[in-house]
């Protein structure tokens, strides 16, 4: 399939990237090549084949509903952010 400039821009938007024109061209080429390669799968007949999302034989793994002390509490976590105020993380205004 053909990847156009606007496709690249759409994928960049989904990925939250701002790309320079150079990047748009380079990534465009790279993505074309990669998509061409992975499209080889079309050859493979997968009719009546169930998909596999995990290679883990177990199911119904869940924990009991019990409050436990955590490895890191509020202060240790908020300390990691650039800016906090009133025990909350400060971010630029949302448009």
């Amino acid at each position: 399939m053909d990847i156009k400039r606007e496709d690249i821009l759409h994928l960049a938007e989904l990925s939250e990237f701002t790309l320079s024109d150079a990047e748009i061209d380079d990534l465009g080429e790279d993505l074309k090549g990669i998509i061409k390669y992975i499209s080889q799968l079309d050859e493979l007949n997968t009719d009546q084949v169930e998909p596999t999302y995990q290679v883990f034989e177990m199911d119904n793994v869940w924990r009991e509903d019990k409050i436990l002390p955590q490895e890191a509490e509020r202060e240790m976590l908020l300390e990691l952010s650039k800016e906090d105020q009133d025990h909350q993380i400060k971010v630029p205004k949302v448009l």
């Binding site: 105020q85 009133d86 025990h87 909350q88 993380i89 400060k90 971010v91 630029p92 205004k93 949302v94």
Partner: peptide
């Protein structure tokens, strides 16, 4: 939850 102020927002 986000609380919005004129120049910034706080995240809880």
């Amino acid at each position: 939850k986000l609380t919005h102020f004129d120049t910034y927002s706080l995240v809880d």
